[in-house]
Design a binder for these strands. Structure first.
Lengths: 194, 194
DNA sequence: CCCGAAATAGGAGATATCTCATATTATTAT
DNA sequence: ATAATAATATGAGATATCTCCTATTTCGGG
């Protein structure tokens, strides 16, 4: 097992290229990207500490590999597949761990899918702001957020302006401050199931 | 292990109620539903032969259970959790199998999520029609389809009418016939990654 | 065979979201 | 420090999609 370290913006896996390792993230963050034929790029999900990378390629001989890019310094264990695949796939503890990880991943994606179809940006953005805010400071990059929530930059701005006009947020220098937590919560709660 | 049989429209698992079994579908089809607070119902996915049901509850103590309803006669194995959970979670062959199943599920959901955000109904419907058509006959129920693709009934109709006007489909008595396979393919191919 | 519920169908207007165009301001590399 | 690049902003018009309404048709149960 090796320890790999990546810098911000470095590609851990390039789209379409099978990785040689199974990674386990110790520290740092990354993004999963997918490119469509027409050039559209979709930010599928975020990766955080304790997530696996490359588990799909461990399990499936044939798989279209998505691109993974570090968004901060990222440190991970890297387990060489050619050497360890067989042993990993026979290790009960590892399999049980991986099963849990995958089941959560599947659940989360299903949730996101369903929510994206069922609710306008207003609700999903409120949820996203609450989830990513640091105290009452929200300062995600707009470009990333609109990739993640799957809306145009223009529309994201539009809804943010609405939030400000309604007094939910207040725009400061280089970030937004949450002014009405409860209002955002009300919008975000609509996403929860009964 | 028991064999359970469900009739069309029967609920295999009711939303919010933890199931007592892990199911493995031998034959038949089902749908996974989720209800939101505001009453909106979302059809999350279809279940087919060789899929598992209840695997989330096997793995997680705390989990909001989604509703699962048979759409045809459905026959499955039912493995009582209270009796077998421990043994299942120590069985390498089973875990490896479940891991593969879950990884495909996660991948599929991620794909659907990303596609739903990136493309209009036109493309997603073309793909859906090609995937569910029996030869050149398409005859899914509109109500189900709009739940699945996450659009309103009205809008689904609208796009179907367009397809007919463009000559891609032709409406017959109680179904649609595919007239221009290639045109639909061109629309559906946009969903594929590069 | 009849009835009520579910499914289909389509009009009309509202809203969410997109595209394109154009400035201005940060950030990064040289 | 400068120039190039990425990110932020905003207007205006187009389109995708929704909601509400109202008929008509189909279908399963008594």
């Amino acid at each position: 097992m090796e320890v790999h370290e990546y810098k911000r913006d470095e590609w851990i896996i390039r789209e379409g290229m099978r990785p040689d390792y199974l990674y386990y993230v110790i520290e740092g963050k990354a993004k999963i990207y997918l490119t469509y034929q027409n050039g559209k790029v979709s930010l599928i999900n975020f990766i955080n500490a304790h997530d696996y990378i490359g588990e799909m390629e461990l399990l499936h001989e044939v798989y279209y590999t998505k691109g993974i890019q570090a968004t901060s310094k990222l440190i991970c264990f890297a387990i060489p597949l050619h050497h360890c695949r067989k042993r990993l796939l026979e290790d009960t503890t590892f399999l049980r761990e991986l099963t849990k990880f995958l089941s959560m991943k599947a659940t989360k994606m299903a949730e996101k899918y369903s929510q994206s179809l069922s609710f306008p940006l207003e609700n999903r953005l409120a949820d996203f702001i609450l989830q990513t805010a640091d105290g009452e400071i929200y300062k995600e990059k707009h470009v990333t957020v609109c990739d993640f929530l799957g809306v145009s930059y223009r529309h994201l701005l539009h809804v943010l302006v609405q939030f400000c006009e309604k007094g939910y947020l207040e725009k400061e220098e280089r970030h937004y401050s949450i002014r009405q937590n409860d209002a955002l919560h009300r919008l975000a709660d609509v996403l929860k199931n009964k």
